[in-house]
């Protein structure tokens, strides 16, 4: 039936549009939040002028500024790879948003293998970062890219394992199922296990976003934003700013979904059900974002080898133990 086919295409179109608006808007809002929250944590005001009210249009203006900047490709760079890299970094970020349920029925695509998909897509950007660093023909970029690759691999594992713990608890890979199975937020209920899994996940997420304290790959005081040293204008925005912000927003969403009970109230109490799920999601989401923003200005960054040690010798063993514990919980409790 042509009509149905058309509708399917329309739906697809709408979905694509939604994603394509949510991500940049989310990134802009995230950027603004970062400006302001960080400023106040640091006892200053942050941007106050653009847009009038507390500088709400700062990130917008920033974006415009970057649009106007010259797009420079270094002579020695591998042009094709260099120009493709931002896309390779940014598109996977877009794809994460497909499976984050904002409310029971508000999800772009409820895949059966939701978590699987999330984690798989989430690690594709590594390739983009490597591409960017290698093709820039810059020593700092190269160091940054290699650091980045090593780090993203190291911290992917704790995230996967902690997500696996949640999946074991829920007995499903679909994100909707996972949320539905959580009577309490996961971080509260299976006591101990949930909380530790949440902390492991958060740590891994911060590392995946390459933010302080795990921002060795882009450490601007050492290797000057690493893989993105040679990027300018829009390419820089997409490969670094949007990717970082997009990742942050996405990981906050994932964290809320997997560990904080998604769109469900904070405790299973019927009067709270009146409040729409979107609001619950928004609250928890804001909390997660704030946590990320709070960590950033507080800590110094961890050295590359310490970072690797921390992942392989601490986080991964801990998450393996968590998997075991969860298995025991599922079997015997």
């Amino acid at each position: 039936m042509p009509e149905i086919a058309l509708t399917a295409w329309q739906i697809l179109l709408v979905k694509v549009l939604v994603i394509l608006t949510i991500v940049p808007v989310g990134a802009l809002a995230g950027g603004y939040a970062e400006h302001k929250v960080m400023a106040h944590l640091q006892h200053r005001l942050g941007p106050m002028y653009p847009g009038g009210f507390h500088g709400w249009a700062t990130t917008l203006a920033d974006g415009l500024k970057f649009l106007y900047k010259e797009d420079i490709v270094p002579d020695a760079a591998d042009r094709k790879v260099f120009s493709l890299a931002p896309a390779a970094i940014f598109v996977p970020v877009l794809m994460i948003y497909l499976v984050i349920p904002i409310d029971r029925n508000l999800i772009v695509e409820d895949l059966d293998v939701g978590i699987f998909y999330l984690l798989a897509v989430g690690s594709i950007s590594t390739i983009g970062v490597l591409m960017a660093g290698w093709s820039s023909a810059n020593k700092y970029a190269l160091i940054g890219a290699l650091r980045s690759a090593a780090q993203l691999i190291a911290y992917e594992l704790p995230i996967v394992l902690s997500a696996a713990v949640v999946a074991m608890y829920a007995g499903s890979l679909s994100v909707i199922d996972i949320v539905e199975k959580q009577n309490f937020p996961f971080a509260i209920w299976p006591p101990g296990i949930g909380l530790i899994a949440f902390l492991v996940f958060t740590t891994g997420a911060v590392a995946e976003m390459t933010r302080v304290p795990f921002d060795m790959p882009v450490a601007e005081s050492e290797i000057i934003t690493g893989p993105f040293t040679e990027y300018t204008g829009m390419r820089y925005i997409f490969s670094h700013m949007f990717a970082e912000m997009g990742h942050m927003v996405a990981f906050a969403g994932i964290g809320v979904t997997l560990f904080l009970g998604g769109y469900k109230p904070i405790i299973p109490w019927s009067p709270l059900e009146v409040v729409p799920g979107v609001i619950w999601f928004g609250l928890k989401f804001a909390l997660m974002i704030f946590l990320f923003l709070w960590i950033r200005p507080t800590f110094p960054r961890v050295r590359e080898d310490q970072l690797q040690k921390f992942a392989w010798k601490f986080l991964i063993p801990v998450s393996l133990v968590l998997v075991l514990a969860m298995g025991a919980w599922v079997l015997y409790v």
Binding site: L41, W294, T298
Partner: peptide
């Protein structure tokens, strides 16, 4: 403690 310091300033 560090996080408390920044939070205090918020």
């Amino acid at each position: 403690k560090g996080m408390a310091v920044t939070l205090k300033h918020l």
